[in-house]
Design a protein around this nucleic acid. Structure first.
Length: 404
DNA sequence: GCGATCAGAT
DNA sequence: CACATCTGATCGC
């Protein structure tokens, strides 16, 4: 069995190639010519592999979420897919492998994930009902105390409030950029009556930067709040159609003038491109507010190596409308980085590891340098020892199953 | 002239 | 600087 290992071509003795989610750094090497073995993944990821990469159908095995399924004739290998909360179709893989003596070994591979209580509450792994996980392969992208961004929901709500504030004003809100020069501001104060309190009426365009797949909750959330349709390219529409979201088609449009919320590539969120974009959409739009959702956008309080586990778990990360500052701001164009992450924060990694009984943890990200491996192991060892002290392991307390 | 690989930008 | 690309240059055939 391998996970996200397509760039090596045929791997000796590998009979099952698993794909955790549809991001290119994970499916790298998978092309229409693939014939090295069966690919196992979620339904959504499978749809994308067939649609986008044109991999032959008979090489793709779409697996259901949450059910334990056997992948060999002897029933010696089973897998259970758990929603990874990363991008649509992303999954954690729980493998159970029976060895020659009949003992079952459990391996949990997180792929890329944003840890949440729902995952550790899954009947296949919840403590204390389940045996220990022998090996956890962990997405350690933000396993560093400086990464303490807020919940996705909080970020989306703050963005909606910021947009509403601009609508109420009838134009963009003058804001200080985090550093450097801002362009000239006009003095005019538009006056709006109530009928004009909508994005299209005040000609404000909302632009969201995304990759091929991911950040859907940001643009669906904004579109819903302001009753706007969503402009996407035909390419992006195809990607979204693979996700089997009910009623999605009436929300999308390929006419940029028919939607106040536009989804574009993250790379086109820069001032030069946005001015040109705005110009091309005259006179439908006069202003543009652009958002780049990314994990590193948060400048909040940080933990240090002296922080106790209790501090880490109990420290919240406040995020409100006032936390949002533009990286670029003129009277017609603003760009905001918002800490909307699809990887676990440092805190969430702590909560995830502390909620499970794990024999051994193998980090899968930031493993290039010795220094970084040492730092990560420091925290992982701390949390593992913490559990040894308390003996009985249980799920770290939470308010909602959606996030710690 | 094509694909593979890599530096660079965002 | 992380992320997950995308673009453009360079290398090999």
């Amino acid at each position: 069995i391998t996970v996200d290992a397509f760039k090596y071509g045929k791997i000796p003795h590998c009979t099952a190639y698993f794909l955790s989610h549809f991001h290119s750094d994970h499916y790298n090497g998978l092309t229409s010519k693939w014939s090295n073995g069966l690919i196992y993944c979620s339904t959504v990821t499978g749809n994308l592999v067939i649609q986008k990469l044109k991999v032959a159908r008979n090489f793709v095995r779409k697996l259901p979420m949450n059910d334990e399924v056997s992948i060999d004739s002897n029933n010696d290998i089973t897998v259970t897919l758990i929603d990874a909360n990363h991008c649509p179709g992303s999954a954690l893989f729980l493998f159970k492998l029976k060895d020659k003596s009949g003992r079952i070994k459990r391996y949990l591979h997180t792929g890329d994930f944003r840890a949440c209580p729902r995952q550790v509450l899954h009947s296949a792994i919840v403590q204390p009902q389940n045996p220990a996980i022998d090996i956890l392969y962990l997405d350690t992208t933000y396993l560093n105390p400086q990464y303490c961004f807020p919940a996705q929901e909080q970020v989306v709500n703050a963005v909606i409030k910021l947009i509403r504030k601009a609508i109420n004003r009838g134009e963009l809100i003058p804001m200080k950029r985090s550093s450097g020069y801002n362009g000239q501001w006009r003095n005019k104060q538009p006056r709006l009556d109530k009928s004009q309190l909508a994005l299209d009426k005040c000609k404000i365009l909302i632009v969201i930067g995304t990759y091929l797949i991911g950040k859907e909750k940001v643009f669906f959330g904004i579109a819903k709040a302001f009753r706007s349709r969503i402009y996407v390219t035909d390419e992006k529409r195809k990607m979204l159609m693979c996700q089997e979201i009910p009623g999605i088609e009436s929300l999308l449009t390929n006419d940029p003038h028919q939607a106040s919320v536009h989804v574009v590539s993250l790379m086109s969120i820069k001032s030069s491109s946005l001015f040109a974009y705005l110009e091309s959409l005259k006179p439908t739009f006069k202003y543009v507010m652009a958002f780049r959702p990314t994990g590193w956008a948060y400048k909040g309080q940080k933990f240090s190596s002296s922080s106790t586990t209790e501090e880490i778990l109990n420290t919240s990360t406040p995020f409100t409308i006032d936390s949002i500052t533009p990286t670029f701001s003129t009277s017609i164009c603003q760009i905001f980085g918002v800490p909307y992450s699809e990887h676990s924060s440092f805190r969430e990694l702590a909560a995830f590891v502390l909620s499970l009984n794990i024999r051994k943890i193998i980090p899968t990200v930031n493993i290039g340098s010795e220094k970084s491996r040492e730092n990560m192991n420091y925290w992982l060892d701390n949390w593992q020892k913490e559990k040894d002290k308390n003996k009985n392991i249980k799920v770290v307390p939470y308010n909602t199953v959606d996030h710690w």
